[in-house]
Simulated scan of single mutants.
Amino acid sequence: MIELKSPAEIERMHTTGRFVAQILSELSELADVGVNLLDLEHHVRGRIRQRGARSCYWDYAPSFGNGPFRNVTCLSVNDAVLHGLPHDYALRDGDILSMDLAVGIDGWVADAARTVIVGTPADEDRRLLRATEEALALGIEAARPGNRLGDVSAAIEAVATDYGYPINTEFGGHGLGRTMHEDPHIPNRGRAGRGLKLRAGMTLALEPWLARTTDRIVFDPDGWTIRSADGSRTAHSEHTIAITEDGPLVLTRFPVEH
């Protein structure tokens, strides 16, 4: 069931979205050679506590995970791309770090992810990251009243295909609002003109993620961290958006950084 949000409810989600975006921007600045993933996790715990927000990850126990998740961030490095369990690891020069965060404030949720390259970037890693960002931008652009869900998925797929990257469809975007995961599921591959008709008031998290040379995934022994099956590097970009009569509104837009 899809719950359409009123303009007032969307604005409340926007408040949460600004907070999520601010925290991800802070993590982007903090992520440097030698910084431990656990330090990033504890930074976010403090910021959530300070704001009086609620982590959507803490105690999350979906069917694909290994018991309740007991962290407030997903931090995934290099060939890890989704649901990375923060652990005792010091970032190294050239690492790719994907950071995913979902919180609720006053009962309304926002979810976003950002990938950064630590230290010295390799050209092929920049290209992979750019592909996810462009796919996200075109997916957002397609999220307009009267379009179909397949238009969003097809826009994301087209970018990945142009770059020559394979696409996994096991995990993708999703609806959200009062909870982190609501209908509909939004795959990163689809056919334009097909699927659910988009309406003003829908709130969605779009999240293209790519591995360089495979569409297959494996799970770490921790039961959470998802990696590319062949060890190739990965990247992940995500925004929460609202569909309005005027088009898509990004609720987790990152602050301008200088």
Rank of each mutant, 00 (worst) to 15 (best):
Y163A: 13
S232L: 04
D39N: 07
N188E: 14
S76A: 08
L196I: 12
E26Y: 01
W224K: 08
T179M: 11
P248D: 10
I226M: 15
V44N: 00
R49E: 15
D215C: 14
L198S: 09
R212Q: 15
L129G: 01
M13G: 14
G107M: 11
V118N: 10
E182W: 06
R130A: 15
D100P: 06
T225Q: 07
P7Q: 12
G223W: 15
L85V: 06
I10Q: 10
L196P: 05
D125P: 02
M1A: 14
T203Q: 06
Q22F: 03
A21P: 03
L37R: 00
N71R: 13
G190L: 05
G104H: 09
D93Q: 11
T169L: 05
A131W: 07
L85R: 14
T213E: 13
D230L: 05
D106N: 15
P208H: 10
V218F: 05
V152M: 07
L27D: 00
G17Y: 10
H14V: 01
M180H: 14
L75Y: 02
T240K: 00
N168T: 05
A160Y: 06
F219A: 13
L82H: 02
H239C: 03
R92P: 03
A242E: 05
I10A: 11
N188D: 15
R178H: 15
I243F: 05
T240N: 00
L136D: 05
V33G: 07
P187L: 07
R114V: 00
R92V: 02
D111P: 03
F171R: 06
S25R: 04
V20T: 13
G175W: 03
P68E: 04
T234L: 02
W224E: 03
R47Y: 03
H42E: 10
T244F: 04
R114D: 00
G46I: 00
E124S: 11
F219V: 08
P86Y: 13
P62C: 09
V218K: 06
N78G: 02
C56R: 07
T213G: 14
I186H: 07
H258K: 12
G164V: 02
A154R: 08
Q50V: 01
F69W: 11
L75M: 03
T16C: 12
G193Q: 09
D215L: 07
E124I: 04
P86R: 08
L91W: 09
G67T: 02
A112V: 00
Y60V: 00
A142L: 03
S76P: 01
R189K: 14
A154K: 07
R233F: 03
D123W: 07
A122I: 01
A137H: 10
H83P: 01
A211C: 15
L198H: 13
T244S: 08
R126K: 12
T252Y: 02
L82P: 02
I226N: 04
G150K: 06
L38A: 02
R130F: 10
D151E: 11
H258I: 02
G201I: 06
D215S: 15
F19A: 13
G107A: 14
A31Q: 01
R199P: 04
S6V: 04
E134L: 15
E134H: 10
G193H: 11
